[in-house]
Design a protein around this nucleic acid. Sequence first.
DNA 1: TTAGATGCAAAGTATTTGCACTACC
DNA 2: GGTAGTGCAAATACTTTGCATCTAA
Lengths: 139, 139
Amino acid sequence: MRTPEKLTEAIHQRGGKVTPQRLAIYRLLAGNQGHPTAEAIHEALREVMPMVSLTTVYKALNELAAAGEVKRFDVGGVSHFDPNTDPHAEAVCLLCGRIRDVEATVPDEDVRIDGFRVSSVATLFYGYCSDCAARRIET
Amino acid sequence: MRTPEKLTEAIHQRGGKVTPQRLAIYRLLAGNQGHPTAEAIHEALREVMPMVSLTTVYKALNELAAAGEVKRFDVGGVSHFDPNTDPHAEAVCLLCGRIRDVEATVPDEDVRIDGFRVSSVATLFYGYCSDCAARRIET
DNA sequence: TTAGATGCAAAGTATTTGCACTACC
DNA sequence: GGTAGTGCAAATACTTTGCATCTAA
């Protein structure tokens, strides 16, 4: 994701408005190294801006995803938004549901597959994190 | 996914029952080269077995996914079930929503990442299929 | 005979949409 | 001042769950 300043510029250029809500969301994402859900962002946002609505959060996130600024991916019926667009993979624990970024050799997103134009790639490892794997063996 | 015969065997071994519903679902999946949704499977199933319920389809699919027989992944809030467990990627069109399997170099699922035990991998390319990419330029 | 499976209806949850109000430019 | 954005409430959609009924073994 680009910096909040760059995004602000881009909005002005297309005749949009830079609202405090959007700015706060951009700043939150810029300082986030995870892959938060809309709900999580809304929660964190309320601490600095108590009146923001979840609807607005969704709209801002969908814009960013459509513009390719964040990577959106679904796990278990919940959408996650990852501001880190560098090539990496996500590890999803099937027991506790936690997701963490992992380094891995992932496919290059600059490929073209038989006419299909790729704009982003999500690589998801499903499995068991060390905590849950241990707990699994015990029981 | 293993053959319907092998799955039948496995069910018997663990004291389960091989119902006509399960068998029909297994056969449908075995002859499917896509990544159908529960709804799609239910639809196709009704042609050979009009009384099967969507609930039963979900239960059978969840069993298969938990057993690692099919790969489950979510796109846009909808779950897809892929009987093809060979390494491959999915290409998701952001406009028409169509998903197709593509050959690509995907990460090996037999890796262990810092204590995380991987059981399956989903690689999703988001972008625009040739039809939609063309339509996008026109408009 | 009986434990396991089915299927209806209802609940639960995530995300989107319509519309009136607000505020950035 | 005009238009883009916000936010409430309601709608929509997918999946799971409780429970009574049925059936494969």
